[in-house]
Design a protein around this nucleic acid. Structure first.
Lengths: 148, 148
DNA sequence: CTCCAGATCATAGCCAGCTATGCATGCGGG
DNA sequence: CCCGCATGCATAGCTGGCTATGATCTGGAG
């Protein structure tokens, strides 16, 4: 329980650092298209299925609702999406891609692939698969954790 | 280059998500001590060597200087550190732990170990070692990446 | 029909990260 | 000596994450 202090906070610290590096690598590649990293996941979800509600987007992207609300506000400001009210349920709004967003889909996908490629340089497919598997297992562990 | 869109943004997305889960798991465990995740790495660095300058802390923790400036401000507000001016160089200040911070060192280290333990449940030591190795390699790749 | 529980979204306020600047100090060359 | 560059820190302003709370609407129980 009271070991020597873990070398550089080990896993949690390293993963946090790696996540920041991924975000930065993505940022430089998508900046030319006027998109920032936080908008990326919602955009991918909408490319897959346009017209999702905010709630559905939260579930798919694994982000809390207020975070999504802010992100969508910026995306609307930046001309990437519109919110169209649901006539059958006035609480909901459907998020729809603009022409501008659809026009840059391929470029954004390419950017994501480029980041993945840069990160995994020198890694075998088996290593990448292992990494994803271990990542998924730890996510499940921590989700089940809940607290204490 | 223009593959099908990567399944859930693959690596970058998963790592981001995992990092958030780590931060949350840590947050619930250290909240009782009045510490938040962003203060954790600087505290560990200071436990190892007290009296570092802000610049040295940035280098050790891999955080940009303005981020550290804000974090230290909150840590000072929360009574975890003091900044004492360097008499021999009036630009610098040394960050020193308070008694309160030193008093909770063991609890904080335990919390970090508990988070690591929760995350790595069901993983072998070899798997954890592999994970850290692959993480380090990707970090090197992305650091070398720079942009484009 | 009414009213209340639940769902959807928005807002407030915080932490944590970043870039771009600005300001003061220190230091080395000429 | 001094001038200019480098260094250390602070500030401004942004993104993006969170919890807590509020407002509005739906739908069902009674």
């Amino acid at each position: 329980m009271t070991d020597a202090l873990p070398r550089e906070e080990s896993l949690g610290y390293q993963v946090n650092h790696l996540a920041r590096l991924f975000a930065q690598a993505l940022a430089v590649r998508i900046a030319p298209y006027g998109v920032v990293p936080g908008q990326f996941a919602p955009l991918l979800a909408l490319f897959e299925q346009d017209g999702l509600s905010q709630r559905e987007l939260c579930d798919r992207v694994r982000i809390e609702q207020p975070t999504m609300a802010n992100t969508l506000q910026r995306m609307e400001r930046d001309g990437l999406v519109r919110r169209v009210p649901d006539p059958s349920d006035r609480r909901r709004a459907h998020v729809r891609l603009t022409e501008r967003a659809r026009a840059i889909e391929q470029e954004l996908v390419s950017a994501a692939l480029a980041v993945n490629g840069a990160a995994t340089g020198g890694l075998t497919d088996a290593e990448i698969a292992t990494y994803l598997d271990l990542t998924a297992r730890m996510m499940r562990n921590l989700e089940a954790d809940g607290g204490q």
